[in-house]
């Protein structure tokens, strides 16, 4: 059976992709951020994932306001990296696992999540930057297959934190009912606090971010009591991307422990963050 071995949450802003393209990892501005990835890479190496389920948001590459799905799941053999308009390098396409995607789609709809399925999908920095960060030596040959799960964080009404938590639970159940022996890692991308638009642009809330980083590990259901407006107020208009993190955490159905975390202000206009979580079944926890 497929098994979710853990999860990684990470920032995904385009500036990170640019810094990678320009080899600025050791630049004094970037070093405190990139140094946070060493332990994540070590963990990922021993986790040996076959599949990454990528919970992210599109920022106007694949979806426009003409059709805006609240939840969309990719079901393609591959996902294209494309020009987003500001000069980030286009990466090699990301391989999909259409059979697993359709399994997840069938389970989600049976579980009353009426998602949009996408057989043709371009993935933007919300997907590509985390892949680039966490598979830095892939050289364009990605070592995992992927399943994109895109959550609307662009046009309100957005799904509530509670709904995203429940979606995560349903994704977790769907994956764990897949008969093939696959090792799955869930990525949740974006955040943490930031606001790009309006006269409050540049808003960052360290206190709230640290609360979120603590709470998502030990008491994630407390986060489901927040409203979307609470998230806008406390995390900033674009800090609502934390919905991706809540969904990711929901997918971890076992005993969850924190392996690593990093938090650094600022990267571009955001608080940058990385969190690595291990997910063990009850049986694994007993054996350990």
């Amino acid at each position: 059976m497929a098994q979710i071995v853990g999860a990684i949450a990470t920032s995904h802003i385009p500036a990170i992709g640019k810094a990678i393209a320009e080899n600025k990892q050791n630049d004094p501005y970037w070093k405190p951020f990139f140094d946070g990835y060493g332990p994540a890479l070590s963990w990922l190496k021993q986790a040996r994932p076959d599949v990454v389920v990528m919970i992210y948001n599109d920022h106007g590459l694949n979806f426009f306001l003409d059709k805006m799905p609240t939840f969309a799941v990719g079901a393609a053999a591959q996902y294209r990296s494309e020009d987003e308009g500001w000069g980030l390098p286009v990466l090699n396409s990301f391989p999909g696992d259409a059979a697993l995607s359709w399994h997840i789609i069938e389970h989600l709809v049976a579980d009353e999540f009426d998602i949009t399925s996408c057989q043709d999908m371009a993935v933007d920095h919300g997907f590509a930057v985390p892949m680039n960060l966490l598979f830095p030596n892939a050289g364009g040959k990605w070592p995992v297959t992927t399943v994109p799960v895109s959550i609307n964080t662009v046009q309100h009404p957005l799904p509530t934190p509670l709904r995203c938590w429940k979606l995560g639970r349903a994704i977790g159940r769907a994956i764990e009912s897949y008969p093939k022996d696959l090792r799955v890692v869930v990525f949740g991308t974006g955040g943490l606090s930031h606001q790009l638009d309006g006269t409050r642009a540049g808003f960052i809330n360290k206190k709230f971010d640290l609360y979120c980083l603590d709470t998502i590990v030990r008491d994630p259901e407390a986060l489901t009591k927040l409203s979307v407006i609470d998230l806008v107020r406390e995390a900033g208009a674009q800090g609502v991307e934390f919905l991706n993190w809540i969904t990711m955490r929901g997918a971890l159905l076992g005993n969850v422990s924190q392996i690593h975390r990093n938090y650094h202000i600022p990267i571009s206009n955001t608080a940058g963050a990385t969190l690595v979580l291990e997910n063990r079944t009850a049986a694994q926890s007993q054996a350990a």
């Binding site: 006269t199 407006i229 806008v232 900033g236």
Partner: peptide, 8 residues
């Protein structure tokens, strides 16, 4: 929330 757009 001052200075903030809820893009609806």
């Amino acid at each position: 929330i001052p200075g903030t757009i809820v893009y609806d």
